[in-house]
């Protein structure tokens, strides 16, 4: 990886955040992990508004890891909003949640999720998921062209 990619992790549980960050460290993956812990802030970040206006500090991510159950706005709502967005609609979104409920899974795909991962148990499994995730989405996968308008 020549450039450092940004992954936006939308997750409200501090334990999950900690363990996920740890998994990235343990896997020696060199990414910039931006962490947002509520739905409205996620929208603000992606819009580049408010305290997220600085695109240098808060760049458009290459991949969004999106939890479903969040304060203010659910993951499904964020996803729906994103897919309606004129510029950001093509951003790859991987749902990263503990729910295995078919209703959640199907709705996520319906709204345009690119993948749906159920959070694994144990740090070894988590590390493996993080490794394959970055390898697939940031290395092997051909990303879409996301046009950023007026966000310099």
């Amino acid at each position: 990886m020549t450039t450092i990619h940004t992954i936006l992790l939308v997750e409200d549980d501090p334990n999950e955040i900690y363990l996920t960050q740890r998994a990235f460290q343990k896997a020696n993956i060199n990414v910039s992990l931006q962490i947002i812990d509520d739905g409205d802030s996620a929208i603000a970040y992606l819009n580049g508004t408010g305290k997220y206006a600085d695109r240098q500090r808060f760049p458009i991510p290459k991949l969004i890891l999106l939890d479903l159950k969040l304060p203010c706005r659910s993951g499904h709502e964020i996803l729906a909003w994103l897919r309606q967005h004129p510029c950001l609609n093509l951003l790859p979104v991987v749902i990263f949640t503990s729910s295995r409920e078919p209703a959640d899974v199907n709705l996520a795909y319906e709204l345009g999720a690119n993948s749906y991962l159920v959070k694994p148990n144990g740090i070894k499994a988590l590390k493996r998921v993080v490794e394959t995730l970055t390898l697939y989405w940031l290395v092997d996968n051909e990303p879409p062209e996301v046009q950023v308008v007026g966000a310099e």
Binding site: N15, E16, L19, E101, D104, K119, I123
Partner: peptide, 25 residues
């Protein structure tokens, strides 16, 4: 309830397991 079980109950549980494993590691 099933949704809560699947999400809210499992989150702290996974944290317990994760941190216990991290502790061991």
């Amino acid at each position: 309830f099933a949704y809560t079980v699947s999400h809210d109950l499992r989150a702290p549980l996974r944290a317990m397991q994760g941190f216990a494993e991290a502790l061991a590691e």
